[in-house]
């Protein structure tokens, strides 16, 4: 089973990597990179490194890619590279797609994902318990709870600091 998944994901990874290199439109390239990063995340999952897989999705495919896309959009304007104005279609699609997303969230929340035992293919703590979500979570929320909390305060300070420096004086 996992062999089949691996080959499917590997082919997808190679294809998306090729797409990233070969497409001329930088936005398309960035989207191919998202697919590629997602494939790598699945491979981590196959190896039992659940935490790494989640971090890969949240940090790389999520945060860093958003940054990429923003940078591309800010630095390379011009309609000839992004094609004809896509906003009209997007506006029409926004409402049904949003509704679909809500339904999906509701379905997931009601399903057994949050209550049932972990998926048999993915054993928690596979690699001697090192990369498993349980062990990382235990470290983070028990042994290293104080550093974890202080880090959140540190991020709060950074947020307030950015506001203080960037805010324009009214009047």
């Amino acid at each position: 089973m996992s062999g089949v998944v691996f080959f499917l994901v590997a082919i997808l990874a190679v294809a998306s990597a090729l797409g990233l290199v070969l497409r001329r439109n930088p936005i398309h390239g960035a989207l191919f990179l998202v697919v590629n990063l997602g494939c790598v995340a699945v491979m981590y999952l196959l190896l039992g490194a659940e935490f790494l897989a989640l971090a890969q999705v949240i940090i790389y495919a999520g945060a860093i890619m958003v940054l990429f896309v923003f940078a591309i959009m800010v630095l390379i304007p011009g309609k000839e590279e992004t094609g004809p104005d896509p906003l009209r279609l997007q506006r029409l699609l926004a409402l049904p797609l949003g509704a679909l997303l809500l339904v999906e969230i509701a379905l997931i929340l009601q399903s057994s994902v949050f209550t049932a035992a972990p998926h048999p293919g993915v054993q928690p703590g596979y690699a001697a318990g090192a990369g498993g979500i349980q062990s990382v979570g235990r470290l983070l929320l028990r042994d290293y709870l104080l550093p974890f909390e202080v880090t959140s305060v540190l991020l709060l300070a950074a947020l307030v600091g950015v506001l203080a420096l960037a805010k324009r004086k009214a009047g």
Binding site: V153, L156, V160, G161, A164
Partner: peptide, 10 residues
């Protein structure tokens, strides 16, 4: 500004 006092406390 409010940020000043918040940052002093942090």
């Amino acid at each position: 500004s409010g940020e000043y006092y918040i940052l002093v406390l942090l």
